[in-house]
Structures are given as structure tokens and as C-alpha cells.
Design a protein around this nucleic acid. Structure first.
Lengths: 241, 241
DNA sequence: CGAGTGTTTGACTGTTCTCAAATGTCGTGG
DNA sequence: CCACGACATTTGAGAACAGTCAAACACTCG
């Protein structure tokens, strides 16, 4: 159940004591299902627990008065969607399930116990929120300085790398991407129409192919170079044995 | 010397024990000066200490191969510029002094001691990095979904609010902004030429006036409403007595 | 088979970019 | 105090990238 999360943890810190890992898992509430489209955390709310995605895709997003929406993160199995809501209290953005999801929550009270008693685990949780922040920096860099084509390529590189780290890639260079082009555009900050043209161009130049929810990367090295993708920011240590 | 930092801390958590505050201050190395334009932290480096700005302005930024630059944060007196480099190890971006700065560093070893011994202070440091992340989300929202005019207005609102919280505003609605329009454009993700036109428009519509390094906000309520600025994300509790 | 949704395409519009020249500001040294 | 150079800002013109609107097409599910 928690295997993707454990894998994600191990890829970030292979030295976490077994006791800490165990204590963390036991602090979670029993898993629940949420259906695609449902709100997992409301913008402006003050949650009393944080939510971990066990399976499925979720998105964090912020909305403007004119209805425009910016996705702030894409979360997959093994990701915390709002670990930061423990220190930060008020949610400055919302979280929604993009697909049916299995989730597990952990009460902020339990997180407080952890910060009081387990310094090592606390540092690891802190690290997880900082990796989110590093990812956000890449998104801002792409949004501000890269043309749509490179920006889209970078996001595909990011997703493939993260899915692989979570053990969610079955065939090399292929992954399921259960988003509409509208949603992908919300992540990149471009319109759905422009997403369509951008994907067509990525396909035409032979870098990547996204059809019917399945992305095939045609040439990883070229794609990564084109997007200036450097996975260091994801803080993935070597594959655990 | 550390008064802006202490003020910033107090605005984030008024319940930090005096002993923790004292221990934190004593963990810093003696203050140093760095001159405008010098690199404070190199992209790709693995610092063994984190840097606090005591006075002056610094910027965090990331550069692409084509020379385009995205500013990722603007840091003022009282801000940590790379507290995240303690858990994250490798810097995915650089930090440069925009003006002459007074800075103080704290060894990661000392931060480690703090995380081992002082859970309350550790949570506060974690919170500081999360406020940076929340600010980044606003920048991404602006970059992706707001036209330059609103985005620029939002940044002015943010800076005024943060400067005020750090005790750096002398006259209401007026503050010093020692950036070139080129640098301001790097923060917004637009060209210097477009910054000039955008500022002219903000001036023409009577919202804000930036001339010779000094910003005057003409109508705070209208500016904040126009930019959809809501300061909640800065996690400022009520003014300390 | 048909409804509903998502994607593609075309035509046109709008924002922002680039290049280039003009103007303004500031510090330095005569 | 003025002249000068360096740098920053403003303005204009044309180009590029991305947005909007609308229609055609494709896919999925009952």
C-alpha cells in the first residue's frame, strides 16, 4: 500500500532508521478513496491533517478572479500533497484529484509528535517540502523564460523521472499521463489550443509523442538537452538495492 | 544588527522561547560585508553554511543556456537566502547581492545541532522555507496567468508588505526599490522594455509610481485589489507589541 | 448509434519581444 | 560648475509567440 511512498523516501534518504519509518507509517489513518475531480483540500482552509497520495494523480492549483487557473504541482503516488500545511496552517491553494486516488492522511498532531521526538525524520519531511519548492522553481523558470516547446519538454522530463523514481514506469521511456491538454496547459501557463500545437511540434521533431493518455519519449538525451533538464533538483540519491 | 531578523521571526512565531532565540543568534558567524553585484552563493555549489541578509537586497536566480535569467526570489534584510541549502545540499540556483549587503552565515553543523535539540526552533526554520515556497507559488501564478500589469502590481504589493513587516518602511506607502528595470523584468519574466511600458501604465492609471529607486503607492486598496493581492501567504501574525 | 468530451485546425487578435535610436540620470574629473 | 562617459529608461516600429473564437474531427461510453 505504502510501497511507492517508501520508495520515494528511500530515494531521498537511504539512512532513515527502520524504527522511524515504522513509526511514520503507523501514524497514518487508514487509506481512503477519492474520485476523479473531487477537491481534496480547499484553498483557504486550515487542515488538521496532511494528505499522502498512495495511487493516482492529484494537482495543486490556484485560481484567479477571472477564472484562469495555474497548476502549482502535479502529485503522483508516493507524494505528499500538503505536508506544508502543517507548519503553514492556512492553505494558499487547493488540491484536487485528477484521477481516482487512494490517499492516506496523517494528523498534524502526529506530525507534531514526530517533530518533537524524531529529529532525523523531521529533517526528511522538511526535505520533502523543499523538493516541492525546487520543482516550483523549475516551473517558474520555464514559465518565465522558456518558450512553450521547451517548457513542455521539461515537464515531460520531470514527470518521467519522478514516475520512474516512484517505481511507476513499466516500459522504459513510456508512461501514462492521465491529463487533458487543458489541464496540461494549466500546468504550463498556456492555453489548451497552444498545448495541442506544442505537442504536435514535439511529435514532428521526433522528441516525444503523447496520444491517448500515453507518452512515449522518442529520444531521452535530445529531449533532456533541449529542455535543459537536470534532475539534480529532485534530490534523488542512487537507486536503493 | 539582527533586529530585522528578530522582527521577522517574531512576525512568524511570537511564542519562540527567549532561550531558543538567543541560541540561534549565537550560532551565527560574525557579520560580513559583500558588495553589490558579487555572487553570494553559486549555482551547483554545496554550501556548508546558510546565509542571512542583515541589510541590503539580494536575489536568487536561475540562468538558461541562452542567457535568459529568471529571478526566483528577492531577499531583504532579515531574510535567509539559502536556508534550504541545509536539507537540500546542492544549490539548484545562485544568489547574488543586488546592493551592498551585510550578511551573517550559520554553519550547517550548527543548524544540525538545532534540529537535534530544539524542535520548536526547527519548526520555525522549516516555516521560513515554506513561506519562501508560498511566495514562489504567487510568482508562478503571476507569471503563468496574470498579464504583466497585474503581475507587476502584485510584486509591488508583496515587497511593500514584506518591507513593512521587516520594519524597513519609513513613510507609509513609500519604499526604496534599488533594482534596475532589467532586474525587475527578470523577476517578472518580461523584458526590460516591457517593464518600462508597464510601469508607465501603472503610473498613468494612478496606482503606483516608481522613479529613481523610490516607489510610491498611490492607492493601496485599488492596487491590492487590481493585483488580487492577499497577504495571507506571507504568514505574518499580528504586529508584535 | 448518438451524446458528450477532448483534440485539431484555421483565421484573426493581442501581448510581449527585439532591435534601434533618443532621452535621461548619475558620477567623475577637469 | 560643466563636460563627458556609462548606464538606465523611454519611445517607436515591426516581428514572434501565444490567445481567442469557432468549426471540424476523433474518441469513449452508454
Amino acid at each position: 500500500m505504502f510501497d511507492r511512498f517508501l520508495r520515494t523516501l528511500a530515494r531521498r534518504d537511504s539512512s532513515l532508521p527502520e524504527a522511524s519509518r515504522q513509526a511514520l507509517l503507523e501514524a497514518f489513518e487508514p487509506p481512503r478513496y477519492v474520485t476523479a475531480g473531487s477537491a481534496m483540500v480547499e484553498q483557504g482552509s486550515r487542515p488538521d491533517c496532511s494528505t499522502l497520495v498512495l495511487a493516482g494523480w492529484a494537482s495543486r492549483y490556484s485560481t484567479l478572479a477571472n477564472g484562469r487557473r495555474q497548476m502549482l504541482a502535479l502529485q503522483i503516488g508516493g507524494d505528499f500533497v500538503d505536508l506544508h500545511s502543517y507548519p503553514l496552517k492556512t492553505m494558499d491553494h487547493g488540491v484536487a484529484a485528477l484521477t481516482d486516488c487512494t490517499i492516506a492522511t496523517i494528523a498534524h498532531e502526529r506530525l507534531r509528535d514526530i517533530t518533537e521526538r524524531d529529529a532525523h525524520l523531521t529533517r526528511l519531511l522538511w526535505l520533502l517540502t523543499l523538493i516541492d519548492a525546487a520543482t516550483l522553481r523549475k516551473w517558474l523558470l520555464g514559465s518565465g523564460q522558456q518558450p512553450a516547446l521547451q517548457h513542455a519538454a521539461h515537464l515531460l522530463c520531470e514527470l518521467y523521472t519522478r514516475l520512474d523514481a516512484a517505481g511507476l514506469v513499466k516500459d522504459a521511456l513510456v508512461f501514462e499521463l492521465p491529463l487533458s491538454q487543458e489541464e496540461f496547459g494549466d500546468a504550463l501557463g498556456i492555453s489548451a489550443v497552444h498545448v495541442s500545437r506544442t505537442l504536435a511540434e514535439l511529435r514532428d521533431v521526433g522528441l516525444a509523442d503523447w496520444r491517448r493518455g500515453r507518452v512515449r519519449i522518442r529520444d531521452w538525451r535530445k529531449l533532456a538537452e533541449f529542455a535543459e533538464f537536470d534532475p539534480t533538483y529532485l534530490s534523488l540519491v542512487d537507486e536503493p538495492r
